[in-house]
Amino acid sequence: MVTRDQIVHWLEATAVVMKENKEYLTQLDAAIGDADHGINMDRGFKKVMEKLPSVADKDIGNILKTTGMTLISSVGGASGPLYGTFFMRSGMALASKEELNDEDLFKMLKTGVEGIVQRGRAQLEDKTMFDAWSPALDAMQAALDNGQNTHDALKAAVDAAEQGMKNTIPLIARKGRASYLGERSRGHQDPGATSSYLMLNALLDTLENE
């Protein structure tokens, strides 16, 4: 079971991770984008932290939806609507839930990622955040099908996301500003795949520590 408090702690942990990696993500973005991904993510999750106390006693769906709306209205760029949609959709899928079972946790991630795909229209190997999310969901699904528990399934997802993130390095970007670089986008890790891995890893850390 994942409790409401754990979801809140995950969002808090994500805010800390985005702050810690602000420069790193911005540097990755400077190589193939417009050098603001870390700045934008840090600003967005700072806003989430301001909003969180007002909904921390509400149900999980409500908390996630509020997170989504806050990110949408504060992050900007492409990542604002993408991460915003992730949380809005996962929030809708988990409306009125006070705690999550294994199936719910997977559903949260899956519906969120479906939202990202619908919004961004990314395909595998376009060099986007989907390259981290897609293998992560596959690995988690496989682990759950094999009867593994939430922690182990999530661990498998995080490992797959990390590998997916690294796999973006040799890819040529086909979406976003990086796509105009063509061949010159090769050899750089995608910033969105990186922040997605960090976010998923923060979830694992939160569940391991509690």
Binding site: I72, G76, G77, A78, P81, L82, T85, R119, G176, R177
Partner: peptide, 11 residues
């Protein structure tokens, strides 16, 4: 047509 503009306007 810039990815950021498109996604924000669509939302």
């Amino acid at each position: 047509n810039y990815t950021g503009d498109v996604l924000n306007f669509e939302t």
